[in-house]
């Protein structure tokens, strides 16, 4: 007898999932400050670390964070990668149109790193420890895309 091959169908899901994520008061203040080209963080009263973007808790100290600080927009490149792929809708892996650079920026006086796109530097010239500065969009919308990228300072 012929071996059974199980058939499957792949219809397009007609359901549209809509989510409304409340950002909470910490992220709201961060977003609002983007409109003024400011980067805001919170400082832990116990370990003194400054976190950007801000959040409610320092996990290792079990402390609620409420001391706000405006942080510098310059720092150094702590880590980088050159992306050759992107995740498209449905997290499908696809080839990027052209390679692009992502960096983890260690802002001066901040203890967490900030993940951002890095521009105006050739991949071959990327070096850990390079000085970087924030570059803003010309027209600010009060969302995360306001802080456009980092580039060598």
């Amino acid at each position: 007898m012929e071996e059974l091959r199980e058939t499957y169908i792949t219809p397009v899901v007609p359901l549209d999932f809509t989510y409304n994520y409340r950002v909470g008061q910490y992220m709201e203040r961060f977003l609002n400050s983007l409109k003024d080209k400011k980067l805001m963080g919170v400082k832990c009263p116990e370990c003194g670390k400054v976190f950007v973007p801000p959040r409610m808790f320092c996990g290792s100290c079990n402390q609620k964070l409420d001391e706000w600080v405006e942080v510098a927009q310059t720092g150094m490149l702590a880590n980088f990668t050159v992306g050759h792929v992107v995740l498209e809708k449905g997290a499908r892996l696809a080839k990027a149109e052209s390679p692009y650079v992502l960096g983890l920026i260690k802002l001066d006086d901040v203890d967490s790193l900030l993940l951002a796109r890095v521009e105006k530097v050739a991949p071959a010239d990327l070096k850990k420890g390079m000085r970087m500065k924030a570059v803003w969009k010309e027209e600010l919308a009060g969302d995360y895309s306001d802080l456009d990228h980092f580039e060598p300072a």
Partner: peptide, 24 residues
């Protein structure tokens, strides 16, 4: 059937990392 990268993508901080779209 499903992209395996969906797993982590949907577990990211929905109010920052997921919106920024750089972290995966």
């Amino acid at each position: 059937q499903v992209s395996p990268y969906l797993h982590i993508s949907y577990s990211l901080n929905p109010i920052y990392d997921r919106q920024l779209g750089l972290l995966n």
